[in-house]
Nucleic acid binder design. Sequence first.
RNA 1: GCACCCGUAGCUCAGCUGGAUAGAGCGCCGGACUUCGAAUCCGUAGGUCGAAGGUUCGAAUCCUUCCGGGUGUGCCA
Length: 586
Amino acid sequence: MLLERYLESLGSEAIQRALDLDAPRPALVRPTQDPKFGDFQINGAMPLGKELKKSPRELAQPIAEALAGVDAIEKAEVAGPGFVNIHLALPWIASKLTEALRDAARDGVPRVEEVSKVIVDFSSPNIAKQMHVGHLRSTIIGDAIARILSFMGHDVVRDNHLGDWGTQFGLLIVGMREWGDENALQATPIPELERVYKLASERAGSDEAFAERARAELAKLQSGDDQNRALWEHFVEVSRGTLEAVYAELDVSFDVWLGESAYHDALPGVVDDLLERGIAREDEGAVCIFWDEIDGAPKALRKQKTPFIVRKKDGAFLYSTTDIATVQHRKDHFHADRALYVVDNRQGLHFQQLFAVMKLLGTDMELEHVGFGTVLGNDGKPLRTRDASGHVITLASLLEESKQRARQRIDEGVAEGRLRVRPEEMDEVSRVVGIGAVKYADLRQNRLSDYQFDWDKMISFQGNAGPYLQYAYARCASIFAKGGVDMDAIVASATITLDAPAEQTLGKHLLRFTDVVYQAGATSQPHLVCEHIYELARAFNGFYAECPVLDAQGATRESRLGLTALTARQIRRGLGLVGIGVVDRM
RNA sequence: GCACCCGUAGCUCAGCUGGAUAGAGCGCCGGACUUCGAAUCCGUAGGUCGAAGGUUCGAAUCCUUCCGGGUGUGCCA
């Protein structure tokens, strides 16, 4: 259940009733920061002090009294300058947890009342280039957001908006004719395309005639030349295979792969429309939108005086043009209510401009740039795709390295008798742990922050790291395995009670799950889910140390098995929402 | 120049829809495996929240200025 929303409604009603107001006031429910103050506090009395000309403490007293007698609340007391501290009733919490335990399909998390059609635009690598660590963020943050929104009940379309139509293809076409190796293109397509692209791009820098040829080939491609079209399709085909392999490793999928090329035919119409409406005009041969000439344009854009260029002077279109066509397609074809762009913060200006154009065009979709920080190297500067020794840090090699490190750690653990992984499970466990560690290291941070890339931190197995959470899950599973207890039977029949302090702490964490998922979905912040699962795992490890489960008797044993089952499910669900897997033994 | 982002413990980061004594992990130091799994648990030390003003009953959080760092900015994506 949505706990805070429920308490907010209880609180605001209590304020209205207790103070005899003609309208409800916000209760301002917040979790307490110290358990000794109870579980939640209602801050709503304090802002009313001035208005009602009474001291907040005086106002808080009747509010606290009005809350007495509610099932969910054990006691409500006035504290400090005028807080009303709420202590939740343990039997009430326990009954909610028992309900969640029974609900194997959704773990007690309700579906949203209003379903939105949401496009999540993420990953979007360029064809003909390897994915490197920089692509990791968009891919896994976007995947996590899509998973969270889907679970909430929204209608999500995952779109991989590939960079498959840019200037680079002119260079690639002439480059392949000049230096291409068809065998290499079959065997190792992306490295071969990268090699050729590098040569071509260097040549174009110093040889204007060569650059002109590349532009001409691009124009031919874009005007439908059969030969160039076939070559391009070949590039896309071989690249896509390589991309799919990485996505499979990451357990990331898409509903549609609508790259830039998909919108090519719509581009002239976009520009004509902007010209006709007087939004854009020609300048120095290019078609531009000048913000300071448009009434009602955002102030920051007007001041900044950076035009939005939708057609180059050579007649070619840009990604600005494509993005406008893309929004229109998402409305016309998918009937989307929202579109989320999971793209690096550095493209913030582009999206600000794009969204402003769409507003001028009257789009009623909710458009949001879900930005994220740059991946930095150890020197604190944006990470280059090559490390100091000149090696490309590809995403594939990062994932491979992580799996290997995981395997090594598991081998050590098994040799020392600390871990229990069967030989036939090694591949699977090192994959789940290795990939999970990489994902968790990224996802647990607020996405807006820049991200310092560090092997040891990223592939960490200690403390607040992926394996910690997976380990807690394995401990849960292990209790059931060791005791020979059928988890389904517990789910169907156990009644949870909260007696020991460690049980109470665990139970209160479990109760917060719905709020966390909804908050994460509303703000596109997967790290909130990570944080919650980490705290849950901590609470469970505390419970594990304090409270014997299998050796307990009667109703206590049942209840503890129920708590363990619910914890296992919530860890698995929570990690699943951010795309991280679990294993029963590790 | 203009726009945007950031500055919190030695390091990496939470907290920033304003709420009580600012929290984690790593690292340091010290405890806990004959007892459901020690990738664990318990504890100690460590902070003028970049600086100064302002708003407020209350500011790490909002506003202003300054200092420091980063990013973007006319024909790449």
